[in-house]
Design a protein around this nucleic acid. Structure first.
Lengths: 197, 197
DNA sequence: TCTTAATAGTTGACCAGTCATCTTTAATTG
DNA sequence: CAATTAAAGATGACTGGTCAACTATTAAGA
């Protein structure tokens, strides 16, 4: 039963990612979430203390696959970490595009909607972004040592630019209904600015 | 009477900017908006057709002062448009910081929350972002001709990077409760990457 | 039998939006 | 000019519906 409960809990989080990403926090009801997991609405609070709690956990649940995917790419190209980063983002752009330019990134959406109003979500967002950012930071340092990424700019600064302008590009994608902003992000940074002279 | 109504309408939009920016679309009620303007709730619909309509108009109302401010800076430094851009963003960072890292940018927040679900807001966002982006694009072209901004990169690409990473930096500011991401944005792009060799 | 977990129904509050009623202004008439 | 009427505008109570959260009840397991 412990396992069964954890499976359902996981199911809650997976459905939560989808609902919160496409509709946002305030536009998604607890009832709707429970219905999506085919669990009675009354049971929601036996899995989570509150909707806010649930959202914070969903944020943490969301970022994990992205971290694992990027790690996989880095491990698969141990001698060309820049290529790993490029492959990762290429894959990401295709995946995001398949969703019909809807949703974007749960982290970005939640940062905008509740990042400064919900303390629980703020903490979850802060740690998720930092974990994700650090991974890219270390990848950039590796690539610098490999000579593919320029060494006259700090990996710190480049990692921040990478994370921030990706978020901005996703917002642009949403309103322009095109992956073009994402493609341009890729070309500008990973295809040009970061490249070793 | 025409004037009086238009004044109140303007008041609605100004209060709307504040409420929608700090709380978001779905977390802000029509009742709350009407209360803020000290107008009976029932009267809201004599000023606007719907909440969605109101939000779309608020978006347009929001961006205008920013465009005017940037234009002012550009006109005040006709021979150094890069300096105008830098001054503008310096001023912006101070202003945003004074709000206690809350809110951020209405455009960014609304793009994330309703940019892909409300057609009315989508249109308003699209045109607001484009107007704002174009202004910076033309400023960058001017600065390129003045020799202060590098000419081996397109102003188009730089304008997009400017707009996108500013949005991302604002999201980071929200969750880190610090203007540091904004400052780094400034140093990275306007203080380094865009500068003529 | 006793304990623990699941859940259906309910809670008061609030949502966007409507509408009948009331107030104010304008026009018309004596 | 005053009185009456008609039109226009303002407004608060109300609509059906949904919200997050609680709780009394039922079911299950030991």
């Amino acid at each position: 039963m412990i396992t069964n409960k954890q499976i359902k809990r996981n199911n809650f989080l997976t459905q939560g990612v989808h609902l919160l990403m496409t509709q946002g926090y305030h536009a998604t009801g607890v009832n709707e979430i429970a219905k999506a997991v085919q669990v009675p609405k009354g049971s929601f609070y036996s899995y989570f203390n509150s909707k806010e709690d649930f959202a914070a956990e969903t944020i943490t649940h969301y970022i994990e696959p992205f971290i694992q995917l990027l790690k996989k790419h880095i491990e698969q190209s141990p001698h060309d970490t820049l290529a790993a980063l490029k492959n990762y983002y290429e894959e990401l752009i295709i995946t995001v595009g398949k969703n019909g330019y809807k949703g974007g990134c749960l982290l970005g959406n939640m940062m905008g909607e509740v990042g400064d109003t919900s303390e629980l979500c703020n903490q979850a967002l802060k740690s998720a972004v930092e974990r994700y950012r650090l991974l890219q930071y270390h990848a950039l340092i590796k690539a610098q040592k490999q000579g593919t990424v320029r060494q006259d700019r700090s990996a710190e600064m480049m990692a921040n630019l990478l994370v921030n302008s990706w978020q901005g590009a996703l917002l642009r994608m949403k309103i322009e209904k095109s992956v073009q902003p994402l493609q341009e992000f890729y070309d500008t940074l990973l295809g040009d600015y970061f490249i070793s002279a």
